Amino acid sequence: MFATPAYAQAAGGGAGAIAQFIPLILIFAIMYFLMIRPQQKRVKQHRELVAALKKGDQVVTQGGVIGKVTSVRDDELEVEIASGVKVRVVRSTITTVLNKTTPVAANS
């Protein structure tokens, strides 16, 4: 029997296996810092923006409708889009707040 060259070669060391995973780990780290982390920050900012909505804020919905918040409930808002025209929208569909209402200072 003759030994083929593939069987005659010695097995590789353990350092080669670790070196193969280093590029995979680097790709994941780069992906995390360039894509995943900024998206998580945006989601957190949007969640805070939606939680801080109150009556009188002027908002834009995902559909592009601009209106003024007239009523705030648990999961939905009532938005006045024209005089006398009010629509109910889900709170999470608000994309931006154009004008925030400021609290009136108490006279002392």
Rank of each mutant, 00 (worst) to 15 (best):
Ser71Gln: 14
Ser71Tyr: 11
Ser71Ile: 06
Ser71Gly: 11
Ser71Asp: 15
Arg73Ser: 13
Arg73Leu: 05
Asp74Glu: 09
Asp74Ile: 04
Asp75Leu: 12
Asp75Ala: 12
Asp75Cys: 04
Glu76Gly: 03
Glu76Trp: 07
Glu76Leu: 02
Glu76Met: 13
Leu77Ala: 09
Glu78Ala: 11
Glu78Asp: 13
Val79Gln: 05
Val79Thr: 05
Val79Met: 13
Val79Phe: 00
Val79Ile: 13
Val79Cys: 08
Glu80Ser: 06
Glu80Gly: 00
Glu80Met: 05
Glu80Asn: 01
Glu80Cys: 03
Ala82Asn: 10
Ala82Met: 10
Ala82Gln: 08
Ser83Lys: 15
Ser83Asn: 14
Ser83Gly: 08
Ser83Arg: 13
Gly84Leu: 12
Gly84Cys: 11
Gly84Glu: 07
Gly84Tyr: 10
Gly84Val: 13
Val85Ile: 14
Val85Cys: 00
Val85Ala: 08
Lys86Pro: 00
Lys86Ala: 11
Lys86Ser: 09
Val87Tyr: 06
Val87Ser: 02
Val87Leu: 09
Arg88Cys: 02
Arg88Asn: 11
Arg88Met: 05
Val89Trp: 06
Val90Cys: 04
Val90Ile: 14
Arg91Ser: 05
Arg91Trp: 04
Arg91Ile: 08
Arg91Met: 07
Arg91Val: 04
Ser92Val: 09
Ser92Gln: 15
Thr93Gly: 05
Thr93Tyr: 10
Ile94Trp: 00
Thr95Glu: 11
Thr95Asn: 07
Thr96Ala: 13
Thr96Lys: 15
Thr96Val: 10
Thr96Glu: 15
Thr96Pro: 01
Val97Met: 08
Val97Asn: 07
Leu98Ser: 12
Leu98Trp: 07
Leu98Phe: 08
Asn99Ile: 11
Asn99Tyr: 12
Asn99Thr: 14
Asn99Gly: 04
Asn99Val: 14
Lys100Ile: 01
Lys100Trp: 11
Thr101Ile: 12
Thr101Met: 14
Thr102Asp: 09
Pro103His: 12
Pro103Cys: 03
Val104Pro: 04
Val104His: 03
Ala106Gly: 02
Ala106Ser: 06
Ala106Asn: 04
Asn107Glu: 01
Asn107Pro: 00
